[in-house]
């Protein structure tokens, strides 16, 4: 789980990139390319290195008309998986 007040960070050397040749969005990281589905792209689009986790979840909830409690674990799982691979940070 991630505390509501924690801030997910896209660190230096990691960036969102539109992969035109394959018609998708990817996350480019040191010697790794992570293909994003629509959900992954939606989450990362909200990570601006300022917003707290709780704010990100509520923005996604209102944007996609889904209950906060339902999406919170999915968003946390996505961020934590990338953080374990040192692709995102949570501070």
């Amino acid at each position: 789980m991630i505390a509501d007040g924690a801030i997910p960070i896209v660190p230096r050397g990691v960036r969102l990139h539109q992969d035109r040749a394959r018609n998708r969005w990817v996350l480019l990281a040191p010697e790794k390319t992570i293909a994003l589905d629509q959900i992954g792209y939606a989450i990362l689009s909200e990570v601006d290195n300022r917003s707290e986790f709780g704010e990100i979840v509520s923005r996604l909830a209102s944007k996609y008309e889904a209950p906060v409690e339902q999406i919170r674990p999915d968003v946390a799982g996505f961020i934590n998986t990338l953080a374990a691979r040192r692709i995102l940070e949570v501070i």
């Binding site: 040749a21 394959r22 990817v26 480019l28 010697e31």
Partner: peptide
């Protein structure tokens, strides 16, 4: 890049 390469070493 036009061909689809994403990472350059």
């Amino acid at each position: 890049a036009d061909l689809g390469v994403l990472q350059l070493h």
